[in-house]
Amino acid sequence: METRGALLIFCWAIALASPFQTRAEGQQSDILLKDVTVSLLEASGAAAAQEKVSGPANLRLVLDHTRTLKVTLSAALASAPDQEFRPQQVFVRLTAKATGGAAYFAAVKAKDGSLYTAAKSAEVQKQVGTQSGAYELALVVGDARTLQPLLWALGEVQVLHPPLDDGSQPAAAPYRAMDVLFRPLPEIVHMHRAPERRAPALVSLLFALVALAPLGAFVVLALRAGANLKGFPTDGAGFLSAAGFHAGLAAILALYVLFWLRLNLMQTLPILAVLAGVTATFGRSTLNHLAAAWQKQE
């Protein structure tokens, strides 16, 4: 039951545990812990070692496969010391120094109303695999009634799994083959197409001029074909609207150049909407004037 509870909150705790470290450093937590006892119990239930701590400590413990690491505590809120307070999240965390993998043990309520967690090496093995050696012991307490959670580093625990036939510790390996599947995959870094070697700037500029040449050729051809500006309206209102229309087109083209060089689409579109509206209005009045002129001719 205890194990299942720990596993249920396991993922949640992983997500929460890392911000704890940074946030707890900044501001004092509202949570008060009393009667915090870290003890090592033999299989018979007798205490092999017992330490009372009143804050972050530097314990040195050895948790072999016959013993149980038990942490008991009771909690109160500094803002309401008389009220009964049972924190929503109380974990003992064992972090393997070699791999950073962490095993979490959720606290349960004892008969006398205090909280306790019990950690065995077999449980550690289920959560982080057969990694033996130095683990960092930490106590993590959080609750919705306080902004700052509490993190006490309590020292170091040597975790020893059941030894092999020759007395040595088993090699570090995942508890189940399936656990390998749920490790984070390597981060995917987007690959851009590698820029190819470009032609010298002179060649590009030369070709830019060559590509512009047809435009010059067009001007020559149009003039030879007899292009002129005699059709441009000369009377006041007609000239004004025709000039406005052409100025609007020129402004839109200039805006496109700006769009190419420095603006983005979201900046360009509102300006374009205004310019297009003005240009369309001028274009419409130009056509009105032209239509009046055609009617007069007929």
């Binding site: 190819e196 032609a199 070709f207 590509a211 050729a217 067009f218 149009a222 074909a225 007899g226 292009a227």
Partner: peptide
């Protein structure tokens, strides 16, 4: 008519520009 001649000239020049760009892409990359 002159207007059509001018339009013809413009479309031919646009096509020529396209061809030139294609040639550039083939030659330079």
């Amino acid at each position: 008519p002159t207007k059509l001649k001018i339009l013809d000239a413009f479309s031919v020049c646009a096509l020529a520009t396209a061809v030139l760009q294609f040639v550039y892409a083939k030659l330079v990359g």
